[in-house]
Every structure is written in structure tokens, then in C-alpha cells.
């Protein structure tokens, strides 16, 4: 059951990611990315990371990607006019190289990674565990990220405000 679920959602994630790269229109790409994120959220659940799965949907799909869609709608960004003109080099070697890279990756991952299997439900990193680690061991990084967010807000406001003239 685990493997079937994994394969289904991995397939969805990969299909959406390919769609992201292939599609001409930015809004289609954005929604494909939302699809990838949704599929990854399910895979996080399979890995027993409940809180991260929820955060993935709330933060990534519900906030960051909405921002992207919002900007695309605001700028009314159309399809890419200029087709990417691949060189003869890319035309001939592109697909074989991709296959070679993925093959190499597969080889290294299969042989280099720890040999273990993951059973659903065996271990769960609950929201409580995450919260405890976040506010004890990782308190300083947590506080620093809040400063980072503040800086980001200020930066965004400064960049996007109307010029006073």
C-alpha cells in the first residue's frame, strides 16, 4: 500500500514538474507547481511529517504560490513570445545527456544511500515534537528567521511602493 501511494503521488509530482518546465504560459506553470507541492505534501505524510505536510500546504501552496498567481494576474503576463531556440549541440545531445545524468544519479543514490525501508505509521514527527525542537534546540535560528522575515517585508515594501514625486 505504501509503495503504491508513493508511486501515484511521485508520478503526479514528476508529471506536474515536467508540465512546469514545458508549458509556455506562466499561470499554467504556477498551477503545475501547486500540483507538485500538493503531491509532495502527501509524500511528507507518508514519511510521517504531519506538521511539515500541513505547513507545505499553508505556506507554500496557500501563501507563496498565491502570491505568484497574484503577480501573474496583476502583470497580465502572457505566453512567452520568443521560442527558446536550441543549438544543434543541445538538439543532438540533450535527451541522451539527461538519461545519462539520471542514470548516474540513480546509481549513486541506490548505492550511496543508507539501505533502509520506510513503513508508513512506524514513526511520526508530530507537531508537538517539531514545536519542542523549534523552541528549545533551534530557538536562536528561529528568532533570526523572524528578523529575516521582517527584513524581507521592509525590502518588499521599499521595492514595490509608489515613487513619491
Amino acid at each position: 500500500m505504501d509503495a503504491i501511494l508513493f508511486l501515484i503521488f511521485a508520478a503526479i509530482a514528476v508529471a506536474c514538474a515536467i508540465n512546469l518546465v514545458v508549458q509556455k504560459h506562466p499561470i499554467t506553470s504556477a498551477l503545475s507547481l501547486v500540483g507538485v507541492m500538493g503531491a509532495l505534501a502527501v509524500i511528507y505524510l507518508l514519511l510521517g511529517a504531519e506538521f511539515i505536510a500541513a505547513a507545505q500546504l499553508i505556506v507554500y501552496a496557500g501563501a507563496i504560490m498565491v502570491l505568484f498567481v497574484f503577480v501573474i494576474m496583476l502583470l497580465n503576463a502572457g505566453e512567452e513570445k520568443k521560442p527558446a531556440r536550441p543549438s544543434w549541440f543541445a538538439k543532438i545531445l540533450g535527451v541522451p545527456l539527461v538519461i545519462a545524468v539520471l542514470g548516474l544519479l540513480n546509481f549513486f543514490v541506490q548505492h550511496g544511500s543508507p539501505d533502509s525501508t520506510i513503513t508508513f505509521g512506524e514513526y511520526t514527527g508530530t507537531a508537538k515534537d517539531v514545536g519542542r525542537a523549534l523552541f528549545t534546540t533551534y530557538l536562536l535560528p528561529f528568532e533570526i528567521t523572524s528578523v529575516l522575515i521582517l527584513v524581507a517585508i521592509l525590502g518588499a515594501v521599499v521595492l514595490a511602493r509608489k515613487e513619491m514625486d
Partner: peptide, 22 residues
């Protein structure tokens, strides 16, 4: 276990229905 978060996530994602429709 994360019922409240799931509800928040669903309400966050449901923006897409409206945005896409428009």
C-alpha cells in the same frame, strides 16, 4: 492529529478556485 492545520490549509488553497475563475 493536525485537524486544525488541515482546515487552515484547505481554506488557504481554496483561493485558487476564485483566482482561476476570474
Amino acid at each position: 492529529n493536525i485537524g486544525v492545520l488541515v482546515l487552515l490549509a484547505i481554506s488557504g488553497v481554496s483561493v485558487y478556485g476564485v483566482a482561476l475563475a476570474g
